[in-house]
């Protein structure tokens, strides 16, 4: 065993936060959709995967990571809009397992579609040249791109918070998640809001796929473990809570990272142990009860 120095612990913590940033983004999308629509989106990992593929595709076509950063969530969000309008919407009011099974099937269709379009080997990716290399963070060297991941997540979370807290649409979304009957009575077309939220949730999933793409292999099956991990985060944070998603995402990342340092064999297990403990002590999750914006 290597000597555990403060520097190593700090570096490990930072690694965990970068890992957690992607978890948090994924869980936000999942949580948003669940909190509003009570749809458990089993295709979330698939939207992430499609985001990674389209991200790499747009990157190749436009030659710019920044263009891809705009185009990818737009395209994935558009797919999400179509899915909500024509597939999920007819199932509202039929019980929670109908959309669950639908999105489960949808994930298979999306994986298979990517296999057909891009092949089963996946596509090679590389870090955008502006964000390549390592920088000194004071206690060690850390990849610039992973710092960018943390920053990008912070920006996205802040933008989302402003949108939900400070805009008219955000107000309707918050109201709709508390009591959609009343919102309807007040003359607001709630189905449009649901459409918007589903599109937003899937767009964020696509965006996190693009952000994760330079750090790992992009292939049709990459969304499968990600789905399990983002469910763990959502359950730990509390289904439907955005604050919970962010806090739990970072927490899961750090727990995974720290376990990797001391007992690498149990790293994968550790996040499920965390989930089990949270479920035993606080079944609704860390921020489960307080509503959408906690």
């Amino acid at each position: 065993m290597a000597e555990i120095t403060l520097q190593l612990l700090m570096l490990q913590l930072l690694t965990g936060l970068a890992l957690g940033a992607v978890y948090a983004l994924l869980a936000i999308g999942l949580s948003l959709i669940f909190g509003m629509l009570t749809v458990v989106n089993f295709a979330h990992g698939a939207f992430f995967m499609v985001g990674a593929f389209l991200g790499v595709y747009f990157l190749t076509v436009t030659g710019s990571f920044w263009f891809s950063l705009v185009l990818t969530p737009t395209a994935v969000g558009a797919i999400g809009l179509l899915c909500e309008r024509f597939l999920v919407r007819p199932l509202y009011g039929r019980g929670i397992d109908y959309p669950l099974l639908l999105t489960f099937g949808l994930s298979y269709v999306m994986v298979e579609a990517m296999r057909v379009i891009f092949g089963i080997d996946g596509v090679p990716t590389s870090t955008p040249s502006e964000l390549r290399g390592v920088v000194n963070v004071g206690f060690g060297m850390f990849p610039l791109y992973r710092l960018f991941l943390i920053a990008a997540t912070a920006v996205i979370v802040l933008a989302l918070w402003l949108f939900i807290e400070k805009t008219r649409y955000g107000l309707i979304i918050r109201a709709g998640s508390r009591d959609n009957e009343i919102v309807r009575v007040l003359g607001i077309d709630i189905s449009k809001i649901w459409l918007l939220v589903f599109g937003l949730g899937t767009a964020i999933a696509g965006l996190s796929g693009l952000l994760a793409a330079p750090t790992r292999a992009v292939n049709p099956e990459m969304g499968i473990p990600v789905l399990a991990e983002s469910f763990v985060v959502t359950v730990v944070g509390g289904m439907g809570s955005l604050v919970g998603a962010v806090v739990a995402g970072l927490l899961v990342g750090v727990v995974f990272s720290m376990t990797s340092l001391f007992a690498p064999e149990y790293a994968e297990l550790s996040i499920f142990v965390l989930m089990a403990v949270v479920l035993l002590v606080r079944p609704q999750g860390l921020f489960g009860k307080a509503g959408l914006m906690g």
């Binding site: 190593l8 570096l11 690498p264």
Partner: peptide, 24 residues
């Protein structure tokens, strides 16, 4: 052998193993 760090088959992110390797 300084360390034999084992990861599960099908790991997609190895970042959390790397600071320790760097430190060794």
């Amino acid at each position: 052998t300084l360390a034999d760090i084992r990861h599960p088959l099908g790991t997609s992110d190895f970042s959390s193993f790397l600071p320790r390797i760097q430190a060794l």
